[in-house]
C-alpha cells in the first residue's frame, strides 16, 4: 500500500467515525439542555431531564416491561436455539437441510412482513395482543441468531469430549449438561446479549403485537408524535449507556472464555 492510499484510507475511516458518533454525541448533549426545545445554542445545562426520566413512573415501568420481555424471550430463544443446534449438529438425517433453512428463515424475513403475519396468526389462534404475544414473536425472531452462533461453536467441540464423558459413565443428558453446555457458554452469552438487544430495540413486532402497554421504543415513538423534547434524549441516553455496557461486557467475557478452550 502506498503512503497516499494509506492517508486516504485513514481520512475515510475518521470521516466514518465522525458520521457514526456525532449524532449520538448530539443526542447525549441535548439531554442536558435546560430548555424545552432541542437545538443549539445551549445556554444553560441541567440534570432535570434525567431526574425526570427516573421519576416518571410510566417510563420506569415501561423500561421494566421491555426488560422482562427481552429477558424472557431471550431465555426461550436460547433454549430452543441450542436444542435445534444440537439436533442439527448430530448425525445427518433426512430433512436436516430443510430444518436448518426453516430455522434461519425468520432472520431474513422483513420485519414488517413477519409482524403482520404474527398479528394475523395471533388473531386466528385467539392470542391476546400484549406481553405474551410480543415475547413469542421476539423469541421466534431471535432463534436463528442463537442457532448460527451456537452451531459455529458446536462445530469446534471435539467429538472425543462427549465420548470421554460417556466413557466415564455419563449418559447423553449428563454429558450434555456437564460437557457440551459449559463448552457452549461463551456462545450462549454472546447470543443471549445479542437477542436481548434485538428484543429491547424491536419496534415493528412490539407495535403490531402490543396491547395497551407500550414497550420502550413504542413509548418513545408516541412521545415523538407529541413533539421532540430533551426528555426523549435523556431516555435514549440511558438506554444507550446500558446497552453499550452490556455489549462490551459480553464481548469481553466471550473473548476471555473463548481462549483456552
Amino acid at each position: 500500500m502506498t503512503r497516499n492510499t494509506r492517508i486516504l484510507m485513514s481520512i475515510v475511516y475518521w470521516a466514518f467515525v465522525v458520521y457514526l458518533f456525532v449524532p449520538l454525541l448530539l443526542m447525549v448533549l441535548m439531554g442536558f439542555k435546560d430548555s424545552n426545545f432541542i437545538g443549539f445554542p445551549i445556554k444553560s445545562w441541567t440534570l432535570d431531564w434525567y431526574i425526570g426520566v427516573f421519576k416518571d413512573s410510566e417510563v420506569v415501568s415501561v423500561f421494566l416491561y421491555s426488560t422482562v420481555i427481552a429477558v424472557t424471550s431471550t431465555l426461550i430463544s436460547l433454549t430452543i436455539g441450542t436444542w435445534i443446534s444440537v439436533l442439527l449438529a448430530g448425525r445427518s438425517f433426512f430433512g436436516r437441510i430443510i430444518i436448518f433453512g426453516l430455522t434461519i428463515l425468520p432472520a431474513v424475513i422483513p420485519g414488517i412482513i413477519s409482524a403482520i403475519s404474527f398479528r394475523i396468526f395471533a388473531n386466528l389462534l385467539g392470542i391476546q395482543t400484549g406481553m405474551f404475544a410480543i415475547i413469542w414473536a421476539h423469541a421466534v425472531h431471535n432463534v436463528p441468531f442463537v442457532v448460527l452462533v451456537v452451531m459455529a461453536r458446536l462445530a469446534t467441540l471435539p467429538k472425543s469430549h462427549t465420548e470421554a464423558a460417556m466413557d466415564l459413565g455419563a449418559d447423553k443428558i449428563v454429558s450434555f449438561f456437564r460437557v457440551t453446555l459449559p463448552y457452549l457458554k461463551p456462545a450462549l452469552i454472546g447470543a443471549g446479549v445479542f437477542c436481548m438487544l434485538l428484543s429491547f430495540d424491536d419496534f415493528v413486532r412490539s407495535f403490531f403485537l402490543g396491547g395497551y402497554k407500550p414497550t420502550l421504543p413504542v413509548l418513545i415513538f408516541s412521545k415523538l408524535r407529541s413533539g421532540m423534547s430533551p426528555e426523549i434524549n435523556a431516555i435514549a441516553t440511558v438506554v444507550l449507556v446500558m446497552t453499550a455496557v452490556m455489549g462490551i461486557w459480553a464481548e469481553r467475557s466471550m473473548r476471555r472464555m473463548g481462549k483456552g478452550t
Binding site: 472425543s160 465420548e163 466413557d167 459413565g169 455419563a170 449418559d171 460437557v179
Partner: peptide
C-alpha cells in the same frame, strides 16, 4: 460406553 467397565485415554486426551 457408560455401561462398561472399560475406560479410554483418547488420542487428543479429551480433557474437559
Amino acid at each position: 460406553p457408560n455401561k462398561r467397565k472399560v475406560n479410554m485415554v483418547f488420542q487428543d486426551y479429551a480433557l474437559f
